[in-house]
Every structure is written in structure tokens, then in C-alpha cells.
Design a protein around this nucleic acid. Structure first.
Lengths: 144, 144
DNA sequence: CAGCATCCCGTTCGATACTG
DNA sequence: CAGTATCGAACGGGATGCTG
């Protein structure tokens, strides 16, 4: 296979992508990476994991307040989903008034670490992306 | 602040999450991490970046064939979006029949690297997640 | 070959009301 | 407090047909 890559980008990136693709192809039928992205790509899972990771333990409404703009429904749905995936642990206390606490499982913590690379990238390149967007919009206007 | 964390999880995870949240809070109004996830959380962006990273340069239909189950419309929309974000470069050749080639920009390559952590995690823990799901489903059935 | 425009459907998600 | 249930709007995304 003929390979040409821009000089400022070492060949490693390509190898990395191929490795991931390999793993995807190897998967029985549904790609695990796709699944993970389906899970954390939704609007709230990522933030839930982040906040739970930062605070260790949070009650339902504490978490809701920290995230800010999540509806009660979506927070419930998201937390149940994370719980089903074994990423979040749910503790229900038989008290009045009711108290439910959430925290990350070890698996959830490990995912948080995997996230951090993405978080770092986002913060490092957010401006570049914003500039690219502006440049693209300007170009569009010029062409159209 | 009182901190209790399970013994098998070093404190670093928490610090990591706090750091990311710090950066999120710092952002003017829209969190860059959220933006990135909005971008790559959609159904196809991630796969586009992966395949382009692995193959270096791909034509429209080549990319479409590699991804497999993407509609023409969604591939177009996705690629335009990635182009707007400065992650993908689009080369149009004034030929008959038309030829359009896509490849990652350096920025796109750097994102690919950030992805790899997630890809690794997904492949490493896919089974654990699947098992957790099954256990959860069984528990649900037992409770309900 | 590459891509845009239109239609249409399923899913997602917010708002609201009710429960233990 | 921490949910569940239901409804309706909004959006994503597939199928189809048409252009350069």
C-alpha cells in the first residue's frame, strides 16, 4: 500500500488509527468503540461522569444542580444507563426524606481517565476549532 | 472538603476530573469539551476521522464504502462539519468525472490521538460493560 | 462521481403532572 | 427528595430524486 503523509505528522497517527480500526473489525458484530461513543456521546453521560469523578459522591439533586441545565428526566435516564453499564454505583437509603447517592465505580474511574485525553485536547484546541469555523463560514459566504 | 475514595482508586482520578471541570468552568460560556463531544459524539464523525486517519487520503465513495452503513447524505453532512471545524481537508479536482479527496488536517490528527485513549478503553472494557449490562438486566427482572 | 433538496419517519428530550 | 408516566415539539437521519 502506498502511503503519503504530511511531513509534520509522524506515521504513528496512521498506525494508531489502523490499530483502532483493527479492533473494530475484530469485534463480533457491534463495535465496542461505537458503543462507548453512543454511551458517552449523549448529552449528559460525560458530564455526569466528570462531576461524579470530581465530587466522589453526589445526591441526585446535588448532581443536577452542578450540571445545571439537565432536566430531571434526563438525569434519571442517564444515571440509570450509566448504572446499567457498570460505570456508576447507586446507593438508596431507606430514609425519610429519601436519599440516593451516586458515585463512580472503578470501571467508571477508568473511563474518566480515558476521557481526560479528550478533555485536554478540547481545551488545548478549542480556539483553533473556533477559528477554523469562522474561516470556513467566511469562505462559504465568499463562495455563495 | 471531605474526601473518601475507594482504596483501589488513587486520588489522581479525582484530581483529573476536577482539572477538566475547572477548564470547563473557565470557558466563556460554552464548554469546549461539550462542543467536542457534540461534534464527535454524532453517529459518523468519529468513524470518518478514524478511517481517514488510517488511510491518509480517501475519495468520497471510498470513505463511504469503508464505513459501510452511512448514507450519502450523512457522509456529506458529517464531512462538511468536520471541514468547518478544521479537522478535515477537502480537495476538489476540476476533472470529469469529478474527484474529491479528503484527508485529516494536523488538527484532525491530533484529535485522533486523543481518541486513541478512548478506543483503547473501549476495547479493554467492552466485556466488563456487557457483563454489567446483563447483571443489571437480571437484577431489574428480579426486582420488577 | 459527488452532492444538494425534499419528504418523512423514528427517536430524543423537555414540560408537566403524579407517587412513595 | 427522588423519582415515574405521559404527551408533544424538535431533531436526526434514511430514502428518493435531481444537478454539474
Amino acid at each position: 500500500m502506498h502511503v503519503t503523509i504530511t511531513e509534520n505528522q509522524p506515521i504513528t497517527f496512521q498506525a494508531e488509527a489502523k490499530k483502532i480500526l483493527q479492533n473494530i473489525q475484530t469485534a463480533t458484530s457491534i463495535c465496542p468503540v461505537r458503543h462507548v461513543l453512543d454511551r458517552i456521546g449523549d448529552k449528559w453521560s460525560f458530564l455526569c461522569i466528570l462531576h461524579l469523578g470530581a465530587a466522589d459522591t453526589l445526591r441526585f439533586n446535588e448532581l443536577r444542580k452542578q450540571i445545571g441545565d439537565v432536566s430531571q428526566r434526563m438525569l434519571t435516564v442517564t444515571l440509570r444507563s450509566l448504572e446499567a453499564d457498570g460505570l456508576v454505583q447507586r446507593h438508596v437509603y431507606a430514609e425519610v426524606p429519601p436519599r440516593v447517592e451516586y458515585q463512580l465505580t472503578p470501571l467508571g474511574h477508568s473511563l474518566l481517565v480515558a476521557f481526560s485525553g479528550l478533555g485536554t485536547w478540547a481545551n488545548a484546541h478549542a480556539q483553533e476549532v473556533a477559528q477554523a469555523r469562522q474561516a470556513f463560514a467566511a469562505r462559504e459566504k465568499g463562495d455563495g
